[in-house]
């Protein structure tokens, strides 16, 4: 494992310059956004909240300070672990993230595993019967999925499984009218199905196509031909040696794409009224809630960073050749 230490050190170094850069970039973007947080907060009440009260709201939020000063005071707080108060939710940012992260992680985590298993398996199956009916079917589905917008898939799933067949709930994390304590495990699982399906379907398509391509490359290699010459069927070659060959890059691709999964969850959470971080992101963005956006931005950054780091570690674990070159 002597390759692990330099890798981790290198990445930590990268994080050390990435974090400040990202915070400055994020803050600049949020400050430049053409949304007035006070106006967004007032919304429909426009006619009933006068100029003095608007000024009072801005003062309560510290918006009467110039932007660089706001950034510095935020930075000072962030250094000591205080990410500030969310304007939209009126509670500390850390509390919003802490309260909403579990719901999002459940969604993303299950979708991550599911789309990986499904994507790799379908990709290998397609490669194993290359040119055959199964291959064409899988490719057709994968290409269709990869060009389908996520919200469309979600609406389709709702129309078929919730409204049409009535098998699954159309939204939310729990049945209406029941408290968290009254909601059984089975209910929670049922409510997970459609959002997870949406999220994993969106993540599956690139994996299928990538795995298939990768495996086809292997199946045409001398090593595969050798195994084939010894009498193994294409299927055995594909799911045996081929699986190991394709798994590493597939896992790397999937982990590196964790950020996209996070983005997809914003959409899925909005459509399915899922009370996670994605929903909070939308609120924060439309309300120009700078502290919350910064907090979520940093959390996402760490999430994607960890995904990429894991992808690198996984790639090195699976492929000995990489280890040699790094060391």
């Amino acid at each position: 494992m002597n390759w692990l230490r330099p890798l981790l050190l290198g990445r930590l170094l990268r994080l050390a310059w990435l974090l400040p850069l990202a915070t400055i970039g994020l803050f600049t973007l949020v400050s430049l956004a053409p949304i007035d947080p006070v106006q967004a907060y007032i919304g429909d009440l426009s006619a009933l909240v006068g100029p003095e009260q608007r000024a009072a709201i801005a003062a309560t939020w510290g918006l009467d300070q110039p932007a660089p000063e706001r950034f510095l005071s935020w930075l000072g707080g962030a250094m000591t672990g205080d990410l500030g108060r969310s304007l939209t939710y009126g509670v500390p940012v850390a509390e919003v993230i802490e309260r909403r992260l579990p719901a999002s992680l459940a969604l993303i985590g299950i979708a991550f595993v599911l789309s990986f298993v499904l994507g790799t398996a379908l990709g290998i199956a397609a490669a194993a019967s290359r040119g055959g009916r199964v291959d064409r079917l899988i490719r057709f589905v994968a290409v269709t999925l990869s060009v389908s917008p996520g919200f469309w898939i979600a609406l389709l799933l709702i129309a078929v499984f919730a409204v049409g067949l009535g098998w699954l709930p159309a939204c939310c994390a729990a049945p209406p009218g029941l408290t968290a304590a009254e909601t059984g495990m089975g209910d929670r699982l049922r409510h997970l199905v459609l959002p997870v399906a949406t999220l994993s379907l969106v993540g599956t398509a690139p994996l299928v196509l990538h795995t298939r391509q990768r495996l086809l490359g292997f199946l045409e290699s001398p090593a595969a031909l050798h195994l084939r010459a010894h009498g193994l069927s294409w299927r055995r070659v594909a799911f045996g040696a081929g699986l190991r060959h394709a798994l590493g890059p597939a896992l790397a691709l999937h982990l590196a794409g964790a950020g996209e999964l996070f983005g997809g969850s914003v959409l899925a959470e909005t459509i399915f009224a899922w009370p996670g971080l994605g929903q909070a992101t939308v609120r924060a963005a439309t309300g120009a809630d700078a502290p919350l956006l910064m907090g979520i931005g940093l959390a996402t950054l760490l999430f994607v960073f960890c995904g990429n780091l894991l992808a690198d570690v996984a790639a090195q674990l699976v492929d000995p050749r990489l280890r040699r070159t790094t060391a």
Partner: peptide, 10 residues
């Protein structure tokens, strides 16, 4: 009774 933020109020 319970407020599940972002989901429902009972």
């Amino acid at each position: 009774v319970e407020w599940q933020e972002g989901a429902q109020l009972v």
